[in-house]
Design a protein around this nucleic acid. Structure first.
Lengths: 245, 245
DNA sequence: ACCTGAACACCGTTCAAGT
DNA sequence: ACCTGAACACCGTTCAAGT
């Protein structure tokens, strides 16, 4: 256990994981993921590229640390949800608590340039990521859901959030300098002759109100979860519904 | 319009987009996305790397063509759904048709190594991608959903599917030769002292029955959608539910 | 018209050697 | 103990020149 984070007897180190991740995240905001190279980061820290490898085994290791750090601000939301459920004051409010956690994750990923891509490309298992998961599971189990349902709901929420933010950030970036942005290309490609239903729906599909899109998907998930207890399988629920007309 | 795909007066071309994408997808299965380089692909086609740029403006362009091709097999499912809804025989069966479309997309992405990463990293707007979207919208509009709901449901389904398959493929790959795979690292990191709820749920969370995980998320979405008509907003539905206890 | 050959401007990573 | 310098084995992309 004599890693570079140990007391240090000699010269004070110029580098350390925390400062390096900070700088890397700033650089990410400046230049984007594709231009975030070890050499450029080393430059920003007034060091040679090779020196970074004393603190991060690989570039992937650095990106994982960056991903983990991005969820730092989630701690507040997570503990808020945890204490709320602990008090059982708002046990019936699980839906809103879960939504708050999901929104906080979306916000955290959107807060940095290419944040979703960084997070999706790594698999952080640090305290922020685990704390978030713990909070989500806590809300669900307190609300009375089973272990399986809770775990799978966590997955669904995270996957939806990652998928959504990935597209949201892709839609905003001008796709490499020239050429049309994402929604514009879709507008051009969706020929009303061949894809009439799709074309008719383009205004919504290419709308930039991403928050509304996210809320819709989230509400479907939460609503489905609410129904789960009344109609054991959603197939049954769909049947009940279709029997109505 | 005298692209390389024109009749060709001189020597028959060794290269063309279709053959190149085929080879690239085979190579992808062999070596994975990280090792899929223009030079390696050129080698597989017995050509110099620079020659590829007569057919693809950038590597991103090639990857987009690969992503689009990956959805080729979806055409069958999509037209099946389309004709089913056209006959209005199974208009009440929209839930199952939508599920079939989502499953087909998951299957298509899983069919190739790193398929989800390739698809998520590009933004295909070819006939397979648009045909899929058209089919989804068709099912929803035929079932009576509004334009906004249909468009946003399409997004939610696609985002959940991409997010899920991204994690599914990440969980299977051995994370770069050595070190633990994804679920194993989670098991090691989820300390029962600090994350008791999470730890209690690890068996499900690290279960490799990904199909079941996907079905759960999908059913939440579809179930939520089914409830949408009865209780205009899901918030209301959640309220109704929590009033029950 | 299509491809080669060679170059340009980079990468991530390693590791002896210095301080 | 921490970092430099230099190298290794690559990248994506461009473009004159050949056929």
């Amino acid at each position: 256990m004599s890693s570079p984070s140990t007391p240090a007897r000699g010269r004070p180190a110029r580098l350390d994981r925390t400062r390096t991740v900070d700088t890397a995240l700033d650089l990410l905001d400046e230049v984007g993921l594709d231009a975030l190279t070890m050499r450029r980061l080393a430059d920003a820290m007034d060091v040679q590229a090779g020196a970074l490898y004393r603190y991060f085994a690989t570039k992937g290791d650095l990106l994982t640390a960056m991903a983990e750090r991005m969820l730092a601000d989630l701690a507040a939301t997570a503990t808020a949800a945890a204490t709320a459920t602990a008090k059982t004051e708002g046990a019936g409010d699980w839906s809103e608590q879960l939504a708050a956690l999901a929104r906080a994750m979306r916000t955290a990923l959107l807060a940095r340039r290419d944040g979703a891509r960084v997070y999706a490309g790594t698999h952080a298992t640090g305290p922020h990521t685990l704390g978030f998961a713990e909070a989500v599971i806590g809300v669900l189990r307190t609300a009375g859901f089973g272990a399986e349902e809770a775990a799978r709901t966590l997955m669904a929420v995270v996957h939806l959030t990652i998928g959504h933010t990935l597209e949201e950030q892709a839609a905003l970036r001008p796709v490499g300098g020239e050429g049309a942005a994402d929604p514009e290309r879709l507008r051009l490609a969706a020929d009303p002759e061949r894809y009439p239903r799709l074309a008719a729906v383009l205004p919504t599909l290419t709308s930039e109100d991403f928050a509304a899109h996210f809320e819709f998907g989230l509400s479907l998930l939460l609503c489905g979860l609410g129904t789960l207890d009344r109609a054991p399988t959603c197939g049954d629920a769909a049947e009940i519904y279709s029997r109505g007309d």
